[in-house]
Amino acid sequence: MTERKDILCIGSVLWDIIGRSASHMRQGSDVPGRITRLPGGVAMNIAMTLARFGMAPTLLTAIGRDAEGDELVRACQRMGMRTDLIYRSEDLPTDRYMAVEGANGLIAAIADAHSLEAAGAKILGPLEDGALGSRDTPFDGLVALDGNLTVSLLEKIARSPAFAAADLRVAPASPGKAERLLPFVNSARATLYVNLEEAGLLCQTQFDTSADAARGLLKRGALRVLVTDGGNAATEADENDLISQTPPEVLVTRVTGAGDTFMAAHIAAEASGASRADALARALQAAATYVSGDTPL
């Protein structure tokens, strides 16, 4: 039997409520479509894809002790995720995310991740109390981290001895939270997964291509970056090398979760021993398959 590789997924695990329509939409549109409720959040989306690729995700997040939280934890367990180290709050409700998508892409979204933010550093307890590691014997495996955490907590993680030995992979939750990743750019301590807009926000400029964005982030101090640009070429780069590849052309039927799928597929590919070029190609293929609607939500 092939050994399942462990990875920590730290960040938002919540309920996604997504409305999708085949129609083009604008502000004020009222159109027919489908509304679904599924486990979501950046950390959850990454964990689900990692599990499909044969990895064993452990979730570090905050989930309420309400009915929605109990249901969410059971859903995580059914997908093969370790949930016993999740911070379960008695007084904080389970977080939710709501989005509306049309044929022309994401129309609007609201992320209600206040419970995760309120829990703060409590979700990191297993990395310091010995359950997963401590300051003296830090966790030395893969960590996927999302930018839904507070700025102060992300700053703590960027310099914490508890993460000193980890292979840390970080993504913003959205362009609006991209600047929260600045501590990881400044500390040169993680691999960053961003899109072209997010790279521009981190560098306080605009880039025409993912390769330009990757160079800009490295110049600012980033250790390693992966920059995507929709259907245009994506780039993976560090101080030694830069690789750009164009994703497969597909009909886009959904967008929420595409970046998380790309990140997870890339991590899984590298964990299986793929070369840098092959890992990037596999991640682009996985993201293209996802947005085309050919894989389970």
Results as ranks from 00 to 15, higher is better:
Asp70Val: 06
Val73Ala: 10
Arg82Ser: 11
Asp66Ile: 01
Gly69Val: 02
Arg78Pro: 07
Leu92Met: 13
Met98Val: 09
Arg65Gly: 07
Ile107Phe: 12
Thr83Gly: 07
Cys76Gly: 10
Tyr87Pro: 12
Gly80His: 03
Val73Leu: 14
Asp70Met: 14
Met98Ser: 14
Gln77Arg: 15
Tyr87Asp: 14
Leu106Ala: 08
Ile86Ala: 15
Gly102Glu: 08
Met81Val: 13
Glu117Asp: 12
Glu68Leu: 06
Ala108Lys: 00
Glu117Ser: 03
Ile110Cys: 14
Arg96Gly: 02
Ala113Asp: 00
Asp70Ile: 12
Ala111Met: 01
Arg74Met: 15
Leu106Glu: 04
Arg82Thr: 13
Gly120Asn: 14
Arg96Trp: 01
Asp91Asn: 15
Ile63His: 02
Leu85Ile: 12
Pro93Ser: 05
Leu116Ser: 03
Ala118Tyr: 05
Arg78Gly: 08
Arg88Leu: 15
Ala108Trp: 00
Gly102Ser: 15
Ala75Val: 09
Gly120Thr: 12
Gly120Ile: 02
Gly69His: 01
Arg88Cys: 09
Asp70Gln: 15
Glu71Tyr: 04
Leu116Glu: 03
Glu71Phe: 05
Gly80Asp: 02
Asp66Gly: 05
Gln77Val: 12
Tyr87Ile: 14
Thr94Met: 06
Arg74Glu: 15
Pro93Arg: 02
Glu71Leu: 11
Cys76Ile: 04
Gly80Met: 04
Asp91Val: 14
Arg78Met: 07
Asn104Leu: 01
Ala109Ser: 10
Arg96Tyr: 10
Gly102Thr: 08
Thr83Asn: 06
